[in-house]
């Protein structure tokens, strides 16, 4: 019996549909560059490029509880942030680490979650490293994946602001004890005699 040629074998292989896992893996591999482009745009403060990666109706919720709807809303949010703290930030960098494989729903919807590590350096040298969590909802439209929603948050119960307040409480307590001690001690200081 004559065996089919290599070309026929290749065609037969191509005709076999990919398993769901293989298809999902292919989608996930296609999604990875999107995250990289978003991180690059964020670190370069290139909001216009960032906005090309989101749907026109995108919903973005930030760590400060503010929500922006649509590309214009997101642009306005970043403009506001630049105006309020941008002038005092001299260095900014963010890294996003996904939890694991993106979770796929049908062929056009995906959910990704992960950690974020943001580094801020302010004028005067103060450094703030904030850990965050993010959830991204991704949709495929016209064969292109885009971000439909992002929610970014900090830990309410354990964050640099609470740490700073606790440190301030210790400092305030220490200073207050020292000042109180000095004032209280002087109160009873023996009066010097006139002859000395």
């Amino acid at each position: 019996m004559r065996l089919p040629s290599r070309g026929v074998l290749a065609l037969l292989l191509l005709a076999v549909p990919m398993s769901p896992t293989a298809a999902d893996d292919a989608v996930r591999q296609g999604l990875a560059p999107l995250k990289d482009r978003v991180v690059t745009a964020l670190n370069a403060d290139d909001i216009e490029t960032l906005l090309t990666e989101v749907t026109p109706e995108v919903a973005f919720t930030a760590m400060n509880g503010r929500v922006a709807h649509g590309r214009d809303g997101v642009r306005a949010y970043f403009d506001t942030m630049r105006g309020s703290i941008g002038s005092s930030v001299t260095e900014y960098h963010i890294a996003l680490t996904p939890d694991g494989p993106v979770r796929l729903y049908g062929g056009d919807n995906a959910v990704a979650t992960g950690d974020a590590q943001a580094h801020y350096k302010f004028k005067g040298g103060m450094v703030l490293d904030a850990h965050g969590r993010w959830t991204a909802d991704l949709v495929r439209q016209n064969d292109r994946w885009q971000i439909a929603a992002v929610h970014y948050s900090g830990n309410l119960f354990d964050n640099p602001l609470l740490d700073a307040a606790r440190t301030a409480a210790w400092l305030a307590g220490g200073i207050a004890v020292a000042v109180g001690f000095i004032i209280g001690g002087r109160w009873w200081r023996p009066a010097r005699s006139a002859s000395t």
């Binding site: 210790w170 207050a176 004890v177 109180g180 001690f181 004032i183 200081r189």
Partner: peptide, 23 residues
Amino acid sequence: KSLVWMVGAGAGVAGLIIGFLLG
């Protein structure tokens, strides 16, 4: 933030009393 003020005030009073007694 309130705790900062409370601790500061409490520690100040405690310092005054201890300083007063030691003096």
